[in-house]
Design a protein around this nucleic acid. Structure first.
Length: 271
DNA sequence: AGTGCGGCCTGTCCGC
DNA sequence: TGCGGACAGGCCGCAC
């Protein structure tokens, strides 16, 4: 399930292969993703080139000089560079064929992903405009998180996963960051001290940075753009480890449902 | 305004 | 072996 480190890894993998490559064809096999792929997407893309690839949160931005293709991988989306003559997977819904013969292919069995086009500044797009700060910038600071936690009665894990507070922190990395900060996921946001907020901000940054270094986390679906698996799953401390012993204190890791999400924690290391 | 939940999807796994 | 149901989960959009 692509979270920020996975999206970052994918960008590294595809960037140099698609920038300045002329688009020869666009194939839409399944228009119905989270939203319909715009009808005119083909005419927007064919014969143009992407001059820049970046991301905002988990949204990938493929920037051309007349607009931006916005991609979201949902939870089962894969983005891969494949030979133009490859046999498409059953769930390959969208492909951009470049003049050099290679294709950028979106495969997404669960179809929670999205393909959008905007002619405007993508950061002003409805879906992106109200997003919170990037976790790896100075804007995501101890003071910032502490101020957002004030008076909030929601659980700290839910707040951490709210993209309007901070982007890119999904279920896996929220559990992991809370472990390293020593904070129980079910704590109310407003109960965090300034010190705990600071610890949590540091933990989020460190967990995400390390995950990017390791090429992301492969639980089931995720592969990098060259078809490899990430390897951060080998470094997880709580996520998916219910009933196994804590890597710090040997206490058994516990699991609970929080906001309809599986949540993992060490009852001794986290308070 | 803040909070919580339903809906969108399909593959996988479990129990009967 | 086959089948139904639970579960996985990002994130919008709605209801309270």
């Amino acid at each position: 399930m692509p979270e920020l480190p996975e999206v970052e890894t994918i960008i590294c993998g595809i960037k140099n292969q698609i920038i300045n490559q002329e688009i020869a064809d666009v194939i839409v096999r399944q228009r119905k993703l989270r939203w319909l792929i715009p009808r005119n997407i083909e005419s927007k893309l064919i014969h143009s080139v992407f001059c820049k690839v970046s991301r905002r949160g988990k949204y990938l931005l493929l920037i051309a000089n007349h607009g931006t293709l916005i991609l979201h991988l949902g939870m089962s989306g894969k983005l891969q560079i494949l030979p133009g003559d490859h046999l498409p997977d059953k769930h390959e819904h969208f492909a951009i064929v470049f003049a050099n013969g290679k294709s950028l292919c979106l495969t997404d069995p669960r179809r929670f992903g999205a393909v959008l086009w905007t002619a405007l500044n993508p950061l002003e797009h409805k879906l992106l405009a109200s997003l919170g700060p990037e976790p790896l910038t100075v804007d995501f600071s101890a003071d910032y998180l502490f101020s957002k936690c004030k008076n909030r009665t929601t659980k700290i894990k839910s707040l951490l996963m709210d993209s309007h507070i901070v982007v890119g922190v999904g279920n896996i990395y929220a559990s992991e960051a809370l472990f390293f900060a020593g904070v129980l996921p079910c704590r109310l946001a407003k109960s965090l001290t300034a010190e705990e907020s600071a610890k949590l901000v540091r933990a989020v940054k460190e967990v995400l940075k390390k995950a990017i270094k390791k090429g992301g986390t492969t639980i089931r679906d995720y592969v990098t753009s060259d078809g490899n698996f990430g390897c951060f799953q080998n470094y997880l401390h709580v996520y998916g480890r219910t009933g196994t012993s804590c890597r710090k204190c040997n206490t058994l890791i516990e699991e609970q449902r929080l906001g309809n999400r599986s949540t993992f924690y060490c009852p001794k290391c986290q308070r």
